[in-house]
């Protein structure tokens, strides 16, 4: 099994953010994780990344137990992520931000720089290498965050609402970028997303989380046929057409 979560439970006081969550992702798949606000999606990502320790359960990546590893080791194992609220280095320029990622795979400055420049061109940020993050638009910030994550050469990429806050042109550009990344760098994706159009156009399989529990696992086009999903997430009046 490439990536597997088994029985993850996380409580915040009386609130159960994740309740016995199990899911798996196959190599080269793009899997979506959807659910209403507060369903526990980001919490699950934080647990995978090692920012939050689960109360119980296991995370396995290529048959290695990641459950107790610190965040930096989880990255070294081959998992990278972007955050719901874009996390960046405000006072660094684009090039150095991406180099922080490439440095994690090479000791050599020139090599790290070259690799970073290649990736920056790949994600369409060329010409902005010397720009401070503080001066970038939301779309560019999200791309820098994604580029830095890619720079660590992940096999599994976790994207938490990468498309949120983008206008429709930017959303299609980002979709193209994600598909291009998939074609050329061949990572596996686990994506949290609210934009249904994105789910429909890139995900091959979707898990639905509601009140911390997985309530469905299906193909994106089957979502609207599942009464539980419609009730929890899409709303009673959702029209499949």
């Amino acid at each position: 099994m490439f990536f597997e979560i088994e029985g993850i439970t996380k409580r915040y006081g009386g609130l159960v953010a994740n309740s016995n969550v199990s899911l798996h992702v196959n190599r080269h798949e793009i899997v979506g994780l959807i659910g209403p606000n507060g369903a526990g999606k980001s919490t699950l990502f934080q647990i995978i990344d090692g920012f939050v320790r689960p109360d119980s359960g296991f995370i396995r990546f290529k048959d290695k137990d990641l459950t107790k590893l610190p965040t930096s080791k989880i990255n070294k194992a081959g998992i990278a992520c972007t955050f719901q609220h874009a996390q960046l280095f405000p006072q660094l320029d684009v090039l150095e931000s991406v180099m922080i990622g490439t440095y994690c795979r090479t000791m050599n400055r020139a090599a790290a720089r070259q690799e970073a420049e290649k990736l920056i061109a790949f994600t369409g940020l060329q010409g902005k290498e010397g720009t401070l993050i503080d001066k970038l638009t939301m779309f560019d910030r999200k791309r820098v965050e994604l580029t830095a994550a890619l720079a660590t050469q992940p096999e599994l990429l976790l994207l938490d609402e990468l498309f949120a806050g983008l206008n429709s042109t930017e959303v299609s550009e980002m979709v193209d970028l994600v598909l291009r990344i998939r074609r050329e760098l061949k990572p596996t994706f686990l994506i949290i997303e609210h934009v249904i159009k994105v789910i429909m156009s890139i995900c091959e399989r979707v898990y639905v989380l509601d009140y911390g529990k997985i309530i469905a696992e299906c193909k994106p086009d089957e979502l609207s046929k599942n009464p539980l999903v419609v009730k929890a997430y899409l709303g009673e009046e959702y029209d499949a057409s």
């Binding site: 990255n75 994550a149 660590t152």
Partner: peptide, 15 residues
């Protein structure tokens, strides 16, 4: 500087 600028992001990038 990565640690100074954003310790969480630094960690998640393997620092």
């Amino acid at each position: 500087v990565a640690i100074r600028e954003n310790i969480h992001l630094a960690r998640s990038l393997g620092v």
